[in-house]
Amino acid sequence: MAVQLNHTIVAARDRDATATFLTEVLGLEPAPVYGPFRVVSLGNGVSLDVAQADGPVTAQHYAFLVSEEEFDQIWERIKERGLTYWADPYHRRPGEINTNDGGRGLYWSDPDGHNLEIITVPYGGG
């Protein structure tokens, strides 16, 4: 078997609010509770296990590969919520999307400051 990512832990100041934010914006099923986590399941079998943080949250980067249709749907939900989005990871191009590698991409932040990204083509052109 090839090595695959199975899950990663996402620290949050409010576990439930962050899990709900992720599932709603990304258009995923509600995140069930599993032990101390809210489990956000992605389409490729990987999960984001959202955990309540006891202290400050260090912002991380999470990128999601989506179809063109999913991109449009997520982008619309981002705009409907009035969230700021950027074309670049350094947040220097607000209100824009990028067309890197022949696809589309954008970045936005979750309630804990995690830098979220959607792309339609993997880096390098897929």
Rank of each mutant, 00 (worst) to 15 (best):
R77F: 13
Y90A: 11
R104Y: 01
Y85R: 12
Y107C: 03
G82I: 05
T84I: 10
E117F: 10
P94L: 08
R92Y: 01
G95T: 12
I118H: 15
P89E: 01
G113Q: 09
E96A: 12
I97F: 07
D112R: 12
P94M: 06
R92V: 00
Y107V: 08
E76Q: 15
D110A: 07
I97G: 11
H91T: 07
H114G: 02
I118G: 13
P89M: 00
H91S: 09
P111Y: 05
D110N: 10
K79A: 14
G105V: 01
Y107I: 05
E80W: 09
P89Y: 04
G105W: 03
Y90E: 11
Y85C: 11
P89C: 02
G95P: 09
G105S: 08
H91F: 10
T84L: 10
Y85Q: 09
S109L: 14
T99A: 05
P89F: 05
W75D: 15
D88S: 09
G102D: 05
P111I: 05
G102W: 00
P111G: 06
N98M: 03
R92F: 01
N98L: 04
N100Q: 04
D110T: 06
D88Q: 07
P89A: 00
P89K: 08
N100K: 09
R92P: 00
N98D: 04
E96R: 12
W86G: 05
D110K: 14
D101L: 00
N98H: 01
I118F: 14
W86S: 13
L116A: 03
K79V: 15
G95F: 06
G82W: 08
E80I: 14
I118P: 13
G113L: 09
E96S: 04
A87K: 09
Y107L: 04
S109H: 14
A87G: 08
H114M: 04
G82E: 02
P89R: 03
R92A: 08
E80T: 15
G103Q: 02
G82V: 10
D110L: 06
D88E: 07
P89N: 00
D112M: 11
R92L: 08
E117Y: 13
E76S: 15
E117S: 07
R81C: 04
K79E: 13
D101I: 00
R77H: 14
E80Y: 08
A87F: 04
L116Q: 11
E96L: 09
S109D: 09
D112T: 04
I118A: 14
G103L: 00
G105H: 08
D88V: 02
P111C: 08
G102F: 03
D110Y: 10
Y85W: 12
Y107P: 05
I97R: 07
R93I: 01
K79R: 15
G105T: 03
I118C: 13
D88A: 05
L83Y: 13
N100R: 11
R104Q: 05
G113H: 13
N115S: 12
N98S: 06
P111M: 06
H91P: 00
P111E: 08
H91N: 09
D101Q: 03
H114K: 04
I78L: 14
P94W: 03
R93W: 02
E117C: 13
L83A: 09
R81T: 07
